[in-house]
Nucleic acid binder design. Structure first.
Lengths: 114, 114
DNA sequence: CGGAATCCAGTTAGATACTG
DNA sequence: CAGTATCTAACTGGATTCCG
């Protein structure tokens, strides 16, 4: 499975950016990693809770390839892998945070209508 | 075809927001509508250029349902339909702009490496 | 524990043709 | 002009099983 971001030239930088963080779980993963500083594979899976191992692994690999997260392997038994944000990935946090606040406001609005 | 945003409760507001603007063309459409104030269907199709009528219509309907854009129909011959941002949609522009700038920086970085 | 591999159903999106 | 309808290829994502 190839990383989409490698096989197509973006037509504009908005497109470029959305390709990198627009995946089904990417926004949440970046946000949770910022929240917890570092998370293990299993912990991430528990927080996202509806994700399959296949999807999680695939998504993490894409984020790693795009240099948004770091994958650190501890060669122990049992194995341990920790994920954290890169500096580039961290630069996206203000954006995600604003988006989160916007989302909160919309959810509130919708609730008031009911 | 149901609008996804209607059939699932978001697990968190990050997820909520990404569902609304994370589609393949949504970011670009919002950005272009902000840039041009208002755009006709055909103009949008030309700017996005690789989109099919089916995808464009579907995406525009989702954005409309989520109250991010306005669809204004002129009952003329030939027909004329203009799209523009709602106030809520406009609130997203600063974030998309931020994302766009981030994208620009990444593209530059990648070019320097080559 | 942190995945990889395989198989398969379901969805999505593209091409094409047609319409008010 | 601004779509709709239909068909199909392609891809996505889920379940399951297995491995170092």
């Amino acid at each position: 499975m190839e990383n989409k971001s490698e096989i197509c030239l973006p037509t504009c930088s908005v497109d470029y950016a959305f390709k990198r963080i627009g995946g089904k779980y990417k926004g949440r993963i970046l946000w949770y990693l910022h929240d917890h500083k570092t998370l293990r594979y299993g912990a991430l899976k528990r927080i996202l809770y509806d994700v399959t191992t296949k999807m999680l692994t695939q998504t993490l690999r894409e984020l790693e390839t795009d240099n948004l997260i770091i994958r650190k392997v501890y060669h122990e038994v049992p194995p341990k892998v920790e994920y954290s944000l890169t500096e580039t990935g961290g630069e996206l946090i203000p954006f995600i945070d604003h988006l989160r606040q916007w989302g909160d406001r919309q959810i509130e609005k919708e609730n008031r209508k009911l």
